[in-house]
């Protein structure tokens, strides 16, 4: 069992390493992707500068907390897209029979397929996140919590994408659903929790768990309570297990390249 885990981790390491090398082939594109992503994230500061010139707090957050929010969001999304890029193309992988090669290998199909390429611009997201935590307060405790939150959040984001992408095992062309869910996760997560009310707040802790991936970490870092950390870890475990469960359930319905849309 332990040996199997070790071997699996080594396979992930090699896969990511080779994917990274592939991206490095074009150094100019590599660098510009990263830089553009950093500028992209930085641009949005303008929006918040203007909003905070109107009001001192937005949704219960101070300006500094908004920066932390942006830091957490970019860092978590960065990790998820860098290491598990293919989790966000999983619908396509399933529909076009691209799981075949992983299914004949003695490793986890799910893990092998989602780690088979990396997103370079996500490095920009991660770097931006790190800059934000430094701006917010550069202490060992903050940095450690930030790392932990980033990893847990990323695992949840990836799990959500896997769960919704797995729908295509049953229903075929469902890109639109998984893409919508993934973009909802991003769109909401860069606004303070406090501006939303009612049912949407409930969604943030259930089917669109950005409450756990973003708002909870902001609370953990700016107002630490152990119970928050516990929620985060339990949430991560639940979503990861759910993702594996749904994916492997769907895999029984996998039809390789035999799924065709016949026109009559």
């Amino acid at each position: 069992m332990l040996m199997e885990v070790k071997n699996q981790i080594y396979a992930i390491y090699l896969s990511i390493k080779y994917a990274f090398q592939r991206e490095l082939l074009n150094k100019f594109t590599f660098l510009s992707n990263i830089i553009f992503m950093i500028i992209n994230n930085a641009c949005f500061i303008i929006q918040w500068v203007i909003l905070y010139s109107i009001k001192d707090e937005v949704g219960g957050y101070s300006f500094k907390q908004v920066l932390l929010l942006w830091g957490v969001a970019s860092f978590t999304f960065g990790i998820s897209r860098f290491f598990f890029k293919e989790a966000f193309n999983l619908t396509d992988t399933i529909n076009n029979g691209k799981l075949d090669n992983y299914l004949v290998q003695p490793k986890s199909v799910l893990i092998s397929s989602i780690t088979s390429s990396i997103e370079v611009s996500a490095i920009g997201d991660m770097l931006y996140g790190i800059v934000m935590i430094i701006v917010f307060g550069f202490t060992l405790k903050n940095v450690l919590l930030f790392l932990l939150c980033g990893i847990c959040g990323a695992l949840i984001i990836v799990s959500i994408s896997i769960i919704f992408s797995s729908l295509s095992f049953w229903f075929g062309k469902t890109e639109i659903i998984s893409e919508t869910v993934n973009s909802l996760m991003i769109n909401f997560s860069v606004y303070p929790e406090g501006i939303f009310t009612g049912i949407i707040r409930v969604m943030f802790y259930t089917i669109l768990p950005l409450g756990i991936t973003t708002y909870l970490p902001v609370r953990i870092i700016s107002d630490f309570k152990f119970i928050y950390l516990l929620y985060l870890i339990i949430g991560t475990i639940i979503f990861v297990l759910l993702a594996f469960f749904v994916f492997y359930r769907g895999l029984r319905k996998y039809s390789s390249t035999n799924l065709m849309n016949a026109r009559v």
Binding site: L51, I176, L184, N187, Y191, T197
Partner: peptide
């Protein structure tokens, strides 16, 4: 249909701005 579902993204943006401005 695809386009229409894609416009959920639009609705979400508007929804976020509504919440934001209602707060402000």
């Amino acid at each position: 249909f695809d386009i229409f579902v894609g416009f959920i993204g639009y609705a979400v943006h508007i929804f976020i701005f509504l919440n934001l401005w209602e707060y402000i």
